[in-house]
Design a binder for these strands. Sequence first.
RNA 1: GGGGCUGUGGUCUAGUGGCUAUGACGUCCGCCUGACUCGCGGGAGUUCCCCAGUUCGAAUCUGGGCAGCCCCACCA
Length: 816
Amino acid sequence: MVIINMAKIELPKQYKPKESEEQLLEFWEKEGIYAFDTESDKKIYSIDTPPPTISGKMHIGHAFSYAQQDFIARFKRMKGFNVFYPFGTDDNGLPTDRLVEKTKNVKSGDMERKEYVKLVLKTLEELRPKFIADWKKIGMSCDFNIYYTTIDEHCQKISQKSFIELYKEGREYRKDAPTMWCPECKTGVSQVECEDKMFDSFFNDIIFRIDGKDVIIATTRPELLPACVAVFYHPDDKRYQKYEGKTAKVPLFDFEVPVLPDERADPEKGSGIVMCCTFGDQTDMEWQKAHNLPIKLALSHEGKMTEIAGRYSGMGIQTARKMIIEDLKDNRLLISQTPIKHAINVHERCGTEIEFIKSKQWFIKYLDLKEDMIKWGAELNWYPKHMKHRYDNWVKGLQWDWLISRQRHYGIPFPVWYCKKCDEVILAKEEDLPVDPLEDKPPVDKCPKCGCAEFKPEKDIIDTWATSSLTPQLCTQLLKNKPIYKKLFPMDLRPQAHDIITFWLFNTVVKSRLHYDKNPWKDVVISGHAQDPHGKKMSKSKGNVVDPREMIEKYNADALRFWAAGTKLGDDLPFMEKDLVTANKTITKLWNASKFAIMHLEDYDGKFDTSKLEVIDRWILSRMHKLIKSCTESFEVYEFSKTKAEAEKFFWQDFCDNYMEIAKHRLYNPDTYGVDARKSAQYTLYTVVLNILKLFAPIMPYITEATYQIYFAEKEGIKSIHNSSWPEYDKKVIDEKAEAAGELVVYAVTNARRAKSDKNVSLKTPIVNMVLKSKLSNDEFKAVERDIAVTTIAEILRYEQLDKDSKIDYEHEIEL
RNA sequence: GGGGCUGUGGUCUAGUGGCUAUGACGUCCGCCUGACUCGCGGGAGUUCCCCAGUUCGAAUCUGGGCAGCCCCACCA
């Protein structure tokens, strides 16, 4: 009698994710499981983690995209890399600024810059720990000790240094030029910060006097009439050619402007003749430049009408528009109004219509580099490939140099003063950084150019993107004092979502090129977006947003990650709560299957001569190694969804539904089937379960670790599954003959089940008589005969070998 | 207007030339089989968006449509 002991290991009956996740987080942190080893010689894999904006809370899109990048980090770690995976928060910029204005109910403009910045930093201190906790909870395996915030001193220094260097390279200039301006935020904005919004408006047909005749001109912006500087028609437009060289009298304001031909005027639009106001839109600016027209400013920085608007000055845009339309009507200068819906550029942060206003701004000159930019993009490895099109498309469409100054209080100051007399730019000294010119003195006593001893500080701040485009420097320079620092840059990976290819990714490439003439990373991995269940974009205004924290609370982090692994890299994925239910089932199944295995492994000493393996064990092991090969190949090219799907299928179907059911009998009854048969199953169970856990570990770090800790950690002698090695494919384990035999077993078992199901009887019901036919030899059949008979409960089992040329591979007869 | 992605059973999804087209959810029928009812077994259900072509053979390649989504531009 062989005594088997299954009772010693204390196994919790159920997996309790909430308790488990909390404990494991602590364990990982305490043991430094994800710590970057600064002393190691191992190959480094460095990740330029996107710093999430601290403006509030994590949304489901974050959870989705950060989970995906974490899969990669964990995979690489198990592959033996020393993974450099820092964490930062983006606390710079308008979103933070507006968040503080809102929550603290202040206006930054009404406060001293110093005071205001203090308040923001204090608010951030309050918000940050809670915010970062969300990222830890979803199981991010960052080294949270390698941390930066884009507003801290370290980052200010690097950002200001970047500015100084680029200035010295001649890449930066300051210019009084029309720029896109947000009257609400009272700052210049760049091309990427704008978005389209549909508005109801009117096409107003108003009368200009040209050469003694009434000419109708259509406009949506009558309030810009005082800034009218010319009137344009298309050179081929016969209706208006006769007015060439004449002047047009602007209604209400009664001044004359030239009538000029220009191809940019579209004869099809409106009346075919158009007014040019400085500045209504981009074309106006082009016209102004091309025809060397004067610049008239009808709008102030606050979005109010200026003095050239005469009696309308001081009014807001909307009020002025209304008044002017009234007055045009009263003077019979307005022929008609056609209601239209049209898209207008608005500031994405506040939804305010963008105006073009002349102001002094800092730019990075880069329009001359468009061809190079395309080359730089082509040097990156894009995953998925097609995402590169977005980069190229953006570069081709670039029309402006990079506007980097912002007229806000909160942010990183320009390290610049100007000579009061000659406006010479005085840069801070590198060793003094970071500086705040409003507080600090310039590094010179006299202007080197004119000798003047008085200076004025730059009040503007550097746009947040000009800093966040330095993340590779921001994170790697945290380890500047360690020898390993040199090995961190260029980095291996930039993971991010596709919506910010055009700015964050693009800007980072540009900065890295301008500074180092090198790309900042080798690979870019682009994730998609989480969508609502109907495949629509989630947005606060639509009210279809899902809070990931609620979902983690209701289900668990692994379930959310499991969902995030459910789609091809780069694809958007609809969020459906039922997917989390499904995920939970897999988690439970994993727990139960492991529990079953561990129960049977209590007396297993790890020693087994694999030449004695049973055929059916060789079958599952062979299949497992094929799985390992495929999963590894998928993961290497960042296709984690394939890894997940294949591992899941193998686990659930091959292993649980088939293998375990077949092997059970040997495990429970060594007396009947022999100790070696049991040992063979134990070896297989140990190997397969451990490897399944490992394959799932990057996707579901909690359940796999929890299970690993109960049994395998001690046996394997490695503290955490996340520090263990990724399963390795072993060609020697592939056994086609065993697989063929296994297939016959599965065929027999499936058909036995079907026969019982057809009769609506329990699977326990014995089969009276079963005949099996296949191409396996009689000896090959013999090796699995017992497995078939026991699993199907067949009382009589006969076998016939089919002819080699038979068209049929299997045949069966079953009698219940 | 330019660019890109997608279009597979009721729903979501796998599948880049060749088996009865994958899996999940749902649905229907049955089963408490010594890990698991968050389970087990089985069934039904797909003109693989449409048209044409290439091919011995197409969900898969080519061309042309149609539809959805996203990005960019224009917006008098």
